[in-house]
Design a protein around this nucleic acid. Structure first.
Ligand SMILES: [Zn+2]
Ligand SMILES: [Zn+2]
Ligand SMILES: [Zn+2]
Ligand SMILES: [Zn+2]
Lengths: 140, 140
DNA sequence: GTTTCTATGAGACTCATTCTCATTTAGGGG
DNA sequence: CCCCTAAATGAGAATGAGTCTCATAGAAAC
């Protein structure tokens, strides 16, 4: 139901084939705007009867990340999370150290200051990670 | 030659023993203000003839991190880096995507804005990760 | 020196992720 | 449609950072 068109375009561009597994992984990533780990995507697909392997889940995510359709997050716990980037608004994350809840934030001032920092150090900025860790309202 | 006193104090506080291995790991971390991975610390010690195991390197770093003598960095490449915190100035990092060079930066305005963001979301802020990735002057 | 109890080393283990390779399948040409 | 071929897949092996186990070594206290 989601931007299958975009998936097809990207696969076509890289001379990759449109397969049911690739479609299923992308659908699953679009089915919520959550921050999912690879295993949960794999299990969700298996549980809904789709025949797919872990290797394929990882391989597909790789393609999606490469084409900017999915963002990979590293929360420092040894498991990558993924979120779709259909909605192109950039955001960063607040992460609860107790319950794992993830909230998103955007702060244009911080974004601007980052660019200044990079300039000052003569770095050509490509991306950034900005994560605030603490205890959420419910966990304090 | 470095704050061995501080190491002793911390070990004492936790009823842990002052051993040659723990001293060696701490010395190694103090010997430069670099961002080192565990393996490089292990190898440096072995190469200088110190008898120590990987397990002990990891265990010692654990203690040091717990007592705020060392900071753990996660650069998203699957290997933690460590830097001593003798110098208590907080800083964040610029990382070159090509050569791996790491530069440090501090921006009080960003720090303040982060706190505001946390407040707005009713998070009790404990720590943050702020990393700017790009290409350094030499790699552009 | 003896006792006691923690620290250490070697290597087994974990767990997310990647790799291998035999088999299946997409997609283009007939 | 059917064939062909290269690409995709699945199962399970491999990898690699980090952790755990347990027999032995070594601090610290007496
Ligand atoms: Zn919480
Ligand atoms: Zn997000
Ligand atoms: Zn560089
Ligand atoms: Zn640093």
């Amino acid at each position: 139901m989601d931007d299958i068109r975009e998936l097809k375009r990207v696969l076509h561009k890289e001379n990759l084939r449109y397969t049911s597994q690739r479609k299923a992984v992308w659908d699953e990533l679009c089915s919520s705007s959550d921050h999912r780990d690879a295993e949960s995507i794999y299990l969700a697909l298996r549980n809904s009867g789709i025949r797919v392997s872990r290797a394929t889940v990882y391989r597909t995510i790789e393609v999606l990340v490469r084409h900017n359709m999915v963002r990979r997050l590293d929360l420092g716990d040894g498991r990558s999370r993924y979120e779709n980037k259909l909605d192109p608004k950039h955001h960063d994350h607040l992460i609860c150290l107790s319950c794992g809840r993830i909230e998103e934030f955007v702060d244009p001032d911080i974004e601007k200051l980052q660019e200044k920092v990079a300039e000052k150090h003569q770095f050509a900025l490509r991306k950034h990670i900005h994560q605030l860790f603490g205890y959420c309202k419910d966990c304090q």
